[in-house]
Each structure stands twice: as C-alpha cells, then as structure tokens.
Design a protein around this nucleic acid. Structure first.
Length: 196
DNA sequence: CGTTTGATGCTCT
DNA sequence: GAGCATCAAACGG
C-alpha cells in the first residue's frame, strides 16, 4: 500500500514492503529535489543480488545501519547509486532510487547534467539522479532526516498506478519482481515495467 | 596476488 | 543493439 501524501513510510519494515511506499516521496539535496517515481528493493532474505548478501563490508556498512539512512556506492567505476536504508539495524536492506520527476532546482540539475536531452531525462536512472542532485560519495551513511540529502513526504500515489517488474542490471535473483514504478511517468528509466 | 564483474550512461552503428 | 569508460569488490589460485 502506498504511503498517503504528507507522510513517510515506516522505514523499519522490509525493503520489498517499503519500496512501493517510497513512490511519491521527495528526495532532496539542497535546492535540488524530485518526486520518486521508480525504485527497487534489495536485501530480503536470500537475495543474492543484494550488496548485503554476504554480510557487511566497508562499502556496504551503511546498508546495515539504522533505517532512514542513506547508502551511496560507486558502480561501474563512475556512477553513484543512492539507496534509502530500511529494515531494522543489522539486517542489511535498502531501496535503490532509480528515477525522479524533477520538481525544484531544475536549472542547477541541468548544469549538473548537461548531456540530458530533456528535463524528463535529467533523473531517469540511478546514476543520472545522483549526478543531477549533486549527491557524492561522502554522503554515504548520513541521516535522511537531518543530513545534506533528505527524504521528505510528497504526494500520494494510488496503488493502481504502480507497475512492477524484474530488477534491472542484475544477474542473480533476476526473477524477483522487485522493481516498482509509477505507471505512465515519462521520468521512469527503460525498459518500462508493465505488470501490475 | 591477477582476473572478473558489476543495482550504468553515453556514443556510435 | 554493440562497445566502451573506469574502478572497487569479490573471487580464484
């Protein structure tokens, strides 16, 4: 069930449960902010695709921290991915933010992403949105309520407007339909999920 | 140690 | 649709 507008989901719950509830919430860094329109859940029991699968390491430490934290990591040597840490401390669960609909600080985001062909491609991917918002490696582990990067209540997203599908870019546990997105939103990365 | 592989994005064909 | 950039973990010997 998606979170009603005006409040955040309970982040101490499992990632698969929290993920769809984050749709409609706002991710902000300074003046740059956008509504979350696409996410993926990681770190449930036996999830071989999760960075938490083999226990904590220096890189994944934030994923095992308290819910409501930010997990940032470098992927493919050049892009950063941002995750909302959820589940109880020590479990190692997080929700990858895959796409945003930009709402404030558009001019700054365009400067951060000069190659984006249009505004709906500013944040249409996990590496794109971290660049657009200006999220950096040093933001890893900070608190999303008090830190430089914040998670804020946003708009309500109706359950029937949420589509699901397999997670993107993984080679393990590919069959799990743990990608969630707002249906018919131009900011969602490709391929667009179709299933309900 | 050396080698492979990524929760990606951009360019060129 | 294929290839590449670029580097830190993970993995095998």
């Amino acid at each position: 069930m998606p979170a009603p507008g005006g409040q955040l989901p309970d982040l101490s719950h499992p990632a698969v449960e929290v993920a769809p509830q984050l749709l409609g919430c706002v991710l902000r860094r300074g003046k740059h902010a956008g509504v979350i329109v696409e996410v993926e859940a990681y770190g449930a029991e036996d999830d071989a695709a999760s960075h938490a699968y083999r226990g904590p390491t220096p890189r994944t430490e934030a994923m095992f921290g308290p819910p409501g934290g930010l997990y940032v990591y470098l992927i493919y040597g050049m892009h950063l991915c941002a995750n909302v840490v959820c589940c109880d401390e020590g479990i190692g669960g997080a929700v990858l933010i895959r796409a945003l609909r930009p709402v404030t600080g558009l001019a700054g985001m365009r400067r951060n992403r000069p190659k984006a062909a249009s505004d709906d491609q500013l944040c249409s991917g996990p590496g794109k949105l971290t660049a657009a918002l200006g999220i950096r490696k040093g933001d890893d582990g900070l608190n999303l309520t008090t830190g430089a990067v914040r998670l804020e209540p946003g708009e309500r997203v109706d359950t029937c407007d949420i589509v699901t599908g397999p997670r993107i870019g993984i080679s393990k546990a590919v069959e799990r339909p743990w990608r969630f997105a707002v249906a018919n939103d131009a900011n969602v990365s490709r391929p667009r999920p179709v299933a309900r």
